[in-house]
Design a protein around this nucleic acid. Structure first.
Lengths: 254, 254
DNA sequence: CGTCCGGTTGAGAAGCCTCAACCACCGTGG
DNA sequence: CCACGGTGGTTGAGGCTTCTCAACCGGACG
């Protein structure tokens, strides 16, 4: 069942769990029983087309989406056709774990690229909160990490200019992707369009284009054909006023 | 013990719990055992001076702050002296419940007015996750509601102009304060300065001043001497593109 | 080979910021 | 009692960042 999907890009069933465990174990120990419980509730990944709506705002939900491959965004459409993305999700992220308690979403989850998603039933999560409270707290932690990202984005949108805002986003993605072995200090794949970036940082794609040129010409970063190449990570972080503190990369009893 | 504080503004010990319970019971039932467990872990409120830092970013924490009276903000200082507030807290809110899993904060919690705070030890919260998993999920829900506010603010900062942004904030506060019986449809107390507002919506206080005049002259809202008077809530909400959906005001099994 | 999507660039407009002055109110101290 | 200083609010003028509109380019794909 798990290995039924035969397309070349199709991920293995355990990939999502592996990356989720990398993310959780960076913050606290997960023992064998907890790991097994987690693996047991993760269904085989399903493919979602690029640009499709994975979870629609407002719909009653009984499962959450663990992203195995691809990039998801949480997105809000405005009356006038503009949209704002409030978080970018990478493999190993639950895109809507908060729906476990909220029971519906306040924003759409959309596939920014082709994605593979493992669904996790809320009933299984409830079971975890009752049988394995520490693992339950680690899942709670996971939604609180999302909250920390949200706050950092709020600060960016409220107080950084366009250059620092984009620089900050590219710094954030570098660290988060590193955690799941998808980036190093020099470069990483980020298969988004400039319009996608614009919807993350609250600018127009035209202005994002100009700012990306500026970042390139200043020898900081290059974003081109879905890849980020960092020329000077120290200067980039200084320009962005970036610190890893809000990403909670330290291991502690939780 | 609980009634020791004698100043006229000093709240009773149970006030914080009462408002927290109003907030939680709006979303799901809390039975007598859960209510008692919650009341048992809430310490008598302590007074914090206006403009003081209640919880400092980065400091290891073993307790969370339940706001009983006053207004708190989550605030990030920038290098250049600017700051951004990412959430406003009202009585009945935990200002840093996320520190239960994160163990420190990514932003300061500051008192925007004189505040009374009840501290709740993390050990007691851990106990709840182990003994009363449903109540634990309700606390998890509470941090997820914060997340929904964060996302709404991100959308505001990214895609609304100054007028709509301030209108949206005033709409949000009206609903949230109503939940804890501190607002009606026409008016509510909001003892903030125009600079505080500016730090919430990512503008300067000068521009906030001009926009408040515009809101007043359009017959939408008046914000004056710490009080918001809503002249036309329907038009105000339309201008703000405000919907209560993201506040999750519905009762459901969670 | 045409079409579409994403990216690039220019020119002018709009929204918000900066700087500065001034006012009203309130608590404090002489 | 009044003078004073501090804080918060108000208004004007000019500047800068970002937006809007528009044109054009290049590559992928049918």
């Amino acid at each position: 069942m798990a290995t039924n999907a035969r397309e070349p890009t199709s991920p293995r069933a355990g990939d999502g769990a592996d990356k989720l465990l990398l993310k959780l174990r960076l913050r606290d120990g997960i023992d064998a029983e907890e790991e097994q419980a987690l693996r047991d509730i993760i269904r085989p990944p399903e493919r979602m087309a690029a640009r499709s709506v994975v979870v629609r705002e407002g719909v009653p939900l009984e499962r959450s989406a663990l992203l195995v491959q691809g990039i998801l965004g949480r997105s809000k459409d405005m009356r006038d056709g503009q949209r704002q993305i409030s978080e970018i999700h990478i493999p190993g992220d639950f895109a809507d774990l908060h729906s476990f308690t909220l029971k519906r979403l306040d924003q759409d989850v959309i596939a920014l690229t082709e994605c593979w998603i493992s669904w996790v039933p809320h009933s299984a999560l409830q079971d975890i909160t009752e049988r394995l409270p520490h693992l339950g707290r680690m899942l709670w932690l996971s939604t609180n990490l999302d909250g920390a990202l949200h706050r950092a984005w709020t600060v960016s949108l409220g107080r950084r200019d366009a250059l620092a805002r984009i620089a900050h986003l590219l710094c954030e993605m570098q660290v988060r992707l590193s955690v799941v072995d998808m980036a190093d200090e020099r470069s990483y794949a980020l298969p988004l369009t400039q319009s996608d970036l614009a919807e993350c940082v609250g600018l127009t794609s035209v202005h994002v284009n100009r700012v990306l040129r500026e970042l390139r010409e200043q020898g900081l970063v290059t974003f081109r054909s879905g890849r980020v190449t960092i020329h000077d990570i120290d200067r980039l972080r200084r320009v962005a006023e970036f610190s890893t503190d809000y990403l909670f990369l330290d291991k502690r009893a939780r």
